[in-house]
């Protein structure tokens, strides 16, 4: 299997077919990241591109790298993106209003120029006859062994530095998203003592007038037919979205009329 995938020089027909199928997929998905109005759709296209790239890595003999690509990128990084999208709000679609005039045209022109430069450089360069990584794998006794040997001997210093970078990033993320409490936390015993000393130690009446409504924004009716303010959440009362029954509305109207008259 590894010998088969170690991608030796003249590429096989199978690889060519896979490439001409996967490369347009990657490019279309990458363009759709730019064109999607909603960030969630961009994230899904990004995941597509990353999976296609993982397959391309494996096709070129980077089996370990292909697996790492799936685990780290499509697994961890994309999930992180989706978490943050959910925190920030999924519905928030991008505004397409330009704050700088003609910035979009300038950006696309710059990109096109840069692309021409890159492709010209690649097309002008002469490359060695592709040998594939098969020989390097065999010298170490296997693909993963070859990568392990490189990481833990020649690149061991880079490896250590990268581990420091990762630890710093983890600490940095915690420091950045940490929020100080503005008010001291009130423990459970203190809250229960407060409740017993208050005028209303029992639970509040449940909301809803069951013959007509069954919702938290409808206050319960007291025996005399008036609405019980304690039965609706404070937050709804603050927002002014409490739904009174028609009877209660009529009574309030009467009270107001009586006061005016």
């Amino acid at each position: 299997m590894i010998e088969l995938l170690a991608a030796t020089s003249p590429t096989s027909t199978g690889e060519a077919v896979a490439f001409w199928f996967l490369a347009p997929t990657a490019v279309v998905a990458a363009v759709m990241i730019l064109l999607s109005r909603k960030a969630v759709h961009s994230a899904l296209w990004m995941a597509t591109t990353m999976i296609v790239l993982a397959v391309l890595f494996i096709m070129q003999g980077g089996i370990f790298l292909g697996v790492v690509q799936v685990v780290v990128y499509t697994g961890a990084v994309m999930m992180l993106f989706l978490f943050v999208l959910m925190l920030v709000g999924v519905d928030a679609s991008d505004s397409f209003v330009e704050t700088l005039r003609a910035q979009r045209v300038a950006g696309i022109l710059l990109g096109a120029g840069f692309g021409v430069l890159l492709i010209a450089a690649v097309s002008r360069a002469t490359f060695p006859e592709a040998t594939g990584v098969g020989a390097a794998n065999d010298a170490a006794g296997g693909h993963v062994e070859a990568i392990a040997e490189a990481i833990f001997t020649r690149y061991v210093f880079t490896f250590e530095v990268v581990s420091i970078v990762l630890i710093t990033a983890a600490v940095g993320a915690m420091a950045l998203t940490h929020r100080e409490r503005l008010t001291p936390r009130r423990p459970q015993p203190e809250l229960s003592v407060d409740r017993i000393r208050s005028a209303h130690p029992t639970p509040h009446p449940s909301p809803g007038v069951y013959a007509q409504h069954n919702a938290v924004d409808t206050p319960a009716l007291l025996p005399d037919g008036t609405a019980s303010e304690a039965s609706v959440p404070d937050e709804l009362r603050r927002q002014g979205t409490v739904r009174y029954t028609e009877l209660e509305d009529a009574r309030k109207q009467e009270d107001e009329d009586g006061e005016q008259g």
């Binding site: 003999g61 980077g62 070859a146 690149y155």
Partner: peptide, 11 residues
């Protein structure tokens, strides 16, 4: 890495 036949590019 594939063109040059060594594993360094992948690392």
């Amino acid at each position: 890495a594939r063109l040059n036949g060594n594993i360094d590019g992948q690392v």
